[in-house]
């Protein structure tokens, strides 16, 4: 039976009807049209679906839409402001840390969350933050470089 949930996504409030077995990822993509988060594995291993629930990064393929009733969600679309991309995104572009681009939204969300928690992350912190993020173009080196470079652009 469908349930009504209220949630805030990237600062906008929504009230929608969802099936209990729809994941948050499905709700964001197919109901609300936020196609930034991607479905890669669907079992929490690839990280492409990473979004924030109340500012904490989670794998949205392992969360049900009904579980986030009343929550504040941020997707990759919410990182840019006034059509300007965030510093983390700029660092990814500068370092060419994007190949096919499928994993990029999750990678950016993970690194952005890292910078909100750790002011001066080292390589180990970056690798720990990217532990559950797979890039099948195997471009990890540029991604780690971008994560380091983001230090120059990141504004709290």
């Amino acid at each position: 039976m469908k349930k009504i949930i209220k949630l805030r996504v990237n600062g906008e409030d929504y009230e929608i009807l969802v099936e209990p077995y729809w994941t948050l990822l499905k709700v964001l993509r197919d109901v609300l049209g936020f196609t930034g988060p991607k479905e890669g594995c669907g079992i929490g291993e690839c990280g492409a679906c990473t979004v924030y629930i109340d500012d904490k990064p989670v794998k949205s393929c392992l969360v049900l839409g009904v579980e986030v009733n009343g929550a504040n969600i941020t997707t990759i679309e919410g990182l840019s402001q006034n059509k300007k991309i965030s510093g983390i995104q700029k660092a990814f572009i500068d370092e060419g840390a994007v190949q096919c681009g499928f994993c990029t939204p999750g990678m950016v969300m993970a690194i952005n969350a890292l910078y909100t928690n750790v002011s001066d992350p080292g390589e180990d912190d970056i690798k720990e933050a990217l532990k559950g993020h797979l890039c099948r173009c195997t471009g990890y080196e540029t991604i780690v470089k971008a994560a380091k470079r983001a230090k120059e652009y990141y504004k709290r």
């Binding site: 929490g44 989670v58 794998k59 392992l62 993970a110 720990e128 532990k131 559950g132």
Partner: peptide, 9 residues
């Protein structure tokens, strides 16, 4: 356990 995002849930 898992990774950072998994550990948040």
């Amino acid at each position: 356990l898992g990774d950072y995002e998994i550990r948040n849930r």
